[in-house]
Design a protein around this nucleic acid. Structure first.
Length: 493
RNA sequence: GCCCCCAUCGUCUAGUGGUUAGGACACCGCUCUUUCAAGGCGGCAGCGGGAGUUCAAUUCUCCCUGGGGGCACCA
């Protein structure tokens, strides 16, 4: 039987509900599905679970779709991709769910329930007070025709509940956790079709996974205890169950399931901050999956080749932004400067450091800046703090820098001499500038550092930064002279 | 309350019935260097507790503890 499963084309899905932006946790689920599909040369399907009319938003569907695309997790069937098993929005499949629900109704595997939400709420509270499990008591299971008519006349709208067998055990065969058993009697009759005609998660999932021929359901651990309910539906409908694999959760620093209260959890936030899509993908893969060696960085091809459920761990993982940052920096450093420059431009524009329309020669300059700053960047957005002095002629001098490196007896005369000699330079290259400064140090009987530092402050206003000669040549001779003048003027005050 | 899952450095993890318990991030030194960053070298740090099985348990079993998840007309 397993062999038969293996020969079938693998079809997996990611089924987000558009009640928020794409979340880090959801992303990891999507990613493992995607990797599994790509590794097995199967299909990755995107299905939007927007049956909760109140909470689902169209623009959030769009935002989730955008984020997935940006991450490079492409799908073979779903919104924008089409496919033979659509529609891929659950809100467009309501008729299908209704039919299956009524089939169960007709076969006596489900029944109409007229309890109102208030009544249910009330009874649940009582149960909990008595220390009993808060499951549905099944009171509408055997409603008399008379009672039913009475409720209808009252104007009550019924839901359809699934009749859960009150004996026996349901086993979940999980690829990651082995056989997990659940006692049926602990599961209450649950709603499969709400009074507004929309299906509940457990029901819609089973129907869609069946109709979309899903072979492997890879999802979060939080669904493990839902799985017996779903299996019961599969059985009632005589459908074949897919293989299940329940991934453990991603946790915040405090060990609780990662959520908004841990700060930024949406992919779009990390995108704005300047994390590279592949860094996020690579990092998230390592949250729960590993190789037997200690490799950390993987190319897309490598990951697809190596990924497998066999090496997915069972323990929950804490999301560690520090490691993501490191990895992001690692990938930024591996990029070509031209590419880095392109990614940096939006941030520079946003801060008004460059004009909306970047001139070609400006573009060239930004590439140089990118090449000398890229090893310092952990996230792209840092560029505006790191390199603003390249663009601002009126930058502020750091108090500490002035105090420690500029408030020296020799500083004004040194800078004046420096200016004079730079003016005489016929070509302004890194080598020439360095030679000039080193011989200047000798002339003034100073250490090279004592000459370099004041110039660094004069040119950037700060103590730390890229190589002095590199940054000076990017600024250009004229601007360097101007900045020395400005510093001299400042020192006079 | 009930059910389910999980448990190796601070974090992500590798690993085995007998290992100096390995790597990565973070952190701390040293080094390179005009500063920062990057790099190189080195360091700190871990098998939650208790029984049992065994010549031997981090590894197998049970219990406890701890953490997480679920028990909706949310997904």
């Amino acid at each position: 039987m397993l062999d038969k499963m293996d020969k079938r084309e693998v079809r997996v899905r990611f089924a987000p509900s558009p009640t928020g932006e794409l979340h880090i946790g959801g992303t990891r689920t999507a990613l493992f599905n995607w990797l599994f599909a790509r590794h097995r040369k199967g299909k990755f399907i995107l299905r939007i679970e927007d049956t909760d009319v109140l909470r689902s938003k169209d623009d959030l569907s769009q935002s989730v779709i955008e984020s997935l695309k940006w991450l490079g997790l492409d799908w073979d069937e779903g919104p924008e991709a089409g496919g033979d098993y659509g529609p891929y929005f659950q809100s467009q499949r309501l008729q299908i769910y209704k039919e299956y629900a009524h089939k169960l109704l007709k076969e006596g595997r489900a029944y109409l329930c007229y309890c109102t939400q208030e009544e249910l709420e009330e009874r649940k509270r009582e149960k909990q007070k008595e220390g009993k499990p808060p499951k549905y008591d099944g009171r509408c299971r055997n409603l008399s025709e008379e009672k039913r008519r009475h409720f209808e006349e009252e104007g009550r709208r019924a839901v359809i509940r699934f009749k859960v067998p009150q004996e026996g055990i349901t086993y979940v065969e999980d690829l990651l956790r082995g056989r997990v058993s659940f006692e049926n009697k602990l599961i209450g009759d649950f709603v499969i079709l709400k009074s507004d005609g929309t299906p509940t998660y457990n029901f819609a999932n089973v129907i869609d996974d069946t109709l979309m021929k899903i072979t492997h359901v890879i999802r979060g651990d939080d669904h493990l205890s839902n799985t017996p309910r779903q299996i019961l539906i599969y059985q009632a409908l005589s459908l074949q169950t897919p293989q299940f694999a329940h991934l453990s959760m991603i946790l915040g620093k405090d060990g609780a399931k990662l959520s908004k209260r841990h700060g930024a959890t949406s992919v779009s936030y990390y995108r704005k901050k300047g994390y590279l899509p592949w860094a996020i993908v690579n990092y998230l893969t390592l949250l729960g999956w590993s190789t037997s060696d200690s490799q950390q960085l993987f190319s897309k091809e490598e990951l697809i080749e190596k990924f497998g459920l066999e090496r997915v761990g069972r323990n929950p993982a804490v999301f560690d932004i520090k490691k993501l940052e490191w990895m992001n920096g690692e990938y930024i450093r591996r990029m070509e400067p031209e590419e880095v420059a392109s990614l940096l431009i939006p941030y520079l524009k946003e801060k008004g450091l460059i004009k909306e329309k970047a001139m070609p020669e400006e573009r060239e300059r930004i590439e140089k800046i990118a090449s000398i700053e890229q090893e310092r960047l952990k996230v792209l957005s840092e560029i505006t703090d790191l390199a603003d002095f390249f663009f601002k002629k009126d930058f502020v001098y750091e108090a500490e820098a002035v105090e420690k490196r500029l408030n020296k007896e020799y500083a004004p005369s040194l800078l004046k001499e420096m200016k004079k000699e730079i003016e005489e330079l016929t070509s302004f290259t890194e080598e020439e500038l360095e030679d000039l400064l080193r011989s200047l140090a000798k002339k003034f009987s100073l250490s090279p550092g004592e000459v370099f530092h004041p110039l660094r402050i004069a040119l950037t206003g700060r103590m730390r930064g890229p190589g002095l000669f590199e940054l000076a040549t990017v600024l250009g001779k004229e601007e360097v002279l101007r900045r020395i003048d400005r510093t001299l003027a400042m020192l006079k005050k």
